[in-house]
């Protein structure tokens, strides 16, 4: 296994291999990057693809064949400033509804917006350490100690991943383009929101 420190050029080359030319538009953040191996990054990319991360963390846009992931916003979460119409009232057997971007979700917990997983330091995971990431997924609380991660994030599934897999995912996430996108804060259910 080759050990290397990802440099922007190397990371970009890797990115081209992994996801195609559409992604090679911004240099990957390399600040504070620990030593990772190519195999680790490839494993992380594979896990992200096969664990349905794209479904919610890359917004959908309307393409010629219908909704498709907006690859210019790869893993950058719910797009900032999106104007959402009011969610339909849920009653009876109906519990959850998602926006047309698949990045805003309404349910008994209120409204949640999918997170920006890119290495942008202000709005993404740029300041997170590998430990912060692992602890978040492992415990279902931000950084392992903050607020709970809201549905529909399948924490009960991903919390069972091995440390090696979570490290691989985090290593891969460091190589993707940083997208500056401040995801809105969640909105509590109407009952909780009416309290001071």
């Amino acid at each position: 296994m080759t050990r290397l420190v990802p440099r922007p050029a190397l990371a970009t080359a890797l990115l081209l291999t992994l996801a195609g030319p559409a992604l090679a538009q911004a240099p990957a953040a390399s600040a504070k990057a620990p030593k990772v191996s190519t195999a680790q990054v490839l494993r992380g990319a594979y896990l992200m693809k096969t664990s349905a991360c794209m479904d919610c963390h890359t917004p959908l846009k309307m393409g010629p064949k219908g909704p498709e992931p907006d690859m210019s916003r790869l893993y950058s979460g719910h797009p900032q400033g999106t104007q959402l119409s009011p969610a339909p009232a849920l009653s009876g057997s109906w519990m959850t509804v998602a926006s047309d971007t698949m990045t805003a979700w309404v349910g008994p917990w209120g409204t949640s917006f999918t997170a920006n997983l890119t290495p942008d330091p202000e709005t993404g995971l740029g300041r997170w350490t590998e430990k912060d990431f692992i602890q978040t997924i492992r415990t279902g609380r931000k950084l392992g100690r903050g607020r709970e991660i809201l549905p529909p994030m399948p924490i009960p599934v991903y919390s069972q991943m091995s440390d090696a897999d979570l490290k691989a995912i985090f290593a891969y996430l460091r190589t993707i383009p940083a997208v500056r996108n401040k995801v809105p804060e969640p909105i509590p259910p109407a009952a909780a929101a009416s309290q001071p």
Binding site: L150, E185, I187, P188, A192, Q195, P196
Partner: peptide
């Protein structure tokens, strides 16, 4: 500090 919105 001034809200008890549990998410904020």
């Amino acid at each position: 500090m001034g809200t008890r919105n549990p998410y904020v």
